[in-house]
Amino acid sequence: MTAQPLGRIDEGTVAFRGHRTWYRVTHPARPADRLPVVVLHGGPGIAHDYTRSMAGLLGADGRTVVHYDQLGCGRSSHLPEAPAGFWTVPLFVAELRNLVDRLDVLAGGFHLLGQSWGGMLAPEYVLAHPAGVRSLVLCDSPASMPLWVAGTRQLLARLPAEVQQTVAVHEAAGSTDSAEYQAAVDAFYRRFLCTLDPYPAELEDSFAALAADPTVYQTMIGPSEFHVTGTLADWSVVDRLPGIAVPTLVVAGEDDEATPASWAPFTERIPDARSRVFAGASHTPHLEVPDQFAQVVGDFLRAHDRPRRSS
């Protein structure tokens, strides 16, 4: 695919429950009759930066791409003093609904793409608010957190024995904030989250933002991807998946921390779903194999575009 230059970029914020949600709308330089795509970043609590290349990857065929930072991270309102019970899945569903209602560019329908936690939020949104969503793309995402944890623990067992021992010792001692534990987390990330060395700048930007304010991630996930003690520990959408009535594409890397068993329910239970696994990639195929990602996801979006005037 030959990339087109990007056009106008609109940035702003919308009010949400007394707070602010930041957004960016990237318009193509040569617009085509295609529906926009809304990108949901991961975490929870990891800012959108590591997905910003999707503006070019998915906008190359004349499509508008919408990014935003979910409440509690990035350029949106930060609430480090909010109680744990504040950070819920319904909160983030309502925030996305509010954004959709406020952005005129989405009024004629849109595609919804979620990466990692974003791919957990996306089906929750479609189940609550199906109107307007023309297709669903779930990237590197589990259908349940227990399935995710079972998979990441299996992946952890593939790392060197000393890494596994470090993890076991610090999780047992409750010292997961130690430098040794964080080094073990980094070893896991470099094998199963992003295999590029060095990391792309946009990924480093997201990690820096997370380090500056880990409130949402630590509340909802916990110390690490493989030691989930937060409020999402029991989350699952598996039993509700047959209620999703939009075409769905599930993508993952062959060495993804989202293991096949964790995302298989999407393809097994959503009536109109298909999948693609990218060789040579882990949890961030859009960074590791961008051309393949753009082709596969772009083909799917084009197959399910509708005129903007449709409702």
Rank of each mutant, 00 (worst) to 15 (best):
V250I: 08
A143Q: 00
P290H: 01
V237Q: 01
D197W: 03
L196C: 05
A184Q: 09
T229V: 05
V237H: 03
W87C: 07
Q164N: 11
L121R: 02
L35Y: 07
G59K: 05
L103H: 08
D177V: 02
S144N: 06
L287Y: 05
R52G: 10
R306P: 00
L91S: 10
V100M: 12
L203P: 14
R30P: 07
R24V: 06
G85R: 09
F207V: 09
I46F: 15
R309M: 09
Y23W: 06
Q292F: 03
A264D: 13
F278S: 01
L203Y: 13
C139F: 11
V297W: 09
M145N: 02
T195H: 05
Y68R: 13
G62W: 04
P285H: 02
P290F: 11
V133I: 05
A32S: 14
T166I: 05
S224D: 12
G45M: 00
H283L: 00
V277R: 05
R302W: 12
A32L: 12
L249Y: 05
R309C: 07
A15Y: 11
D186Q: 15
D101M: 10
E11Y: 04
H67I: 04
R240M: 03
V250F: 14
R309G: 04
E124P: 07
V37C: 02
V228A: 01
H170E: 01
V296Y: 07
R153L: 14
A60G: 12
P5D: 00
L58Q: 06
A264H: 04
V38D: 04
G74T: 01
D10N: 14
Y125I: 08
W117E: 11
V163K: 13
G222H: 05
H111M: 04
L203S: 09
G7D: 10
S310D: 04
R17S: 14
W148H: 11
A29P: 08
P200E: 13
S310A: 09
S141A: 15
A281V: 02
T259Q: 03
L156Q: 01
Y189H: 13
D10R: 15
T195W: 08
A143I: 02
W87D: 06
A212V: 10
R158M: 11
M120Q: 15
A122C: 08
S282Y: 06
R75W: 01
D239N: 04
D49T: 15
P5V: 01
G118V: 11
V167Y: 00
W117L: 07
T13S: 14
T284W: 07
L301R: 10
A187C: 09
F188W: 03
A209S: 12
Q154H: 10
S206L: 07
M145R: 02
R274G: 13
E202H: 07
L155V: 12
Y199K: 08
E162L: 12
F226G: 01
Q295N: 12
A84M: 04
V277I: 15
A209R: 02
C139D: 14
L159P: 09
L127F: 01
H48K: 13
D104G: 03
Q182G: 10
Q4T: 14
L99Q: 08
W87K: 03
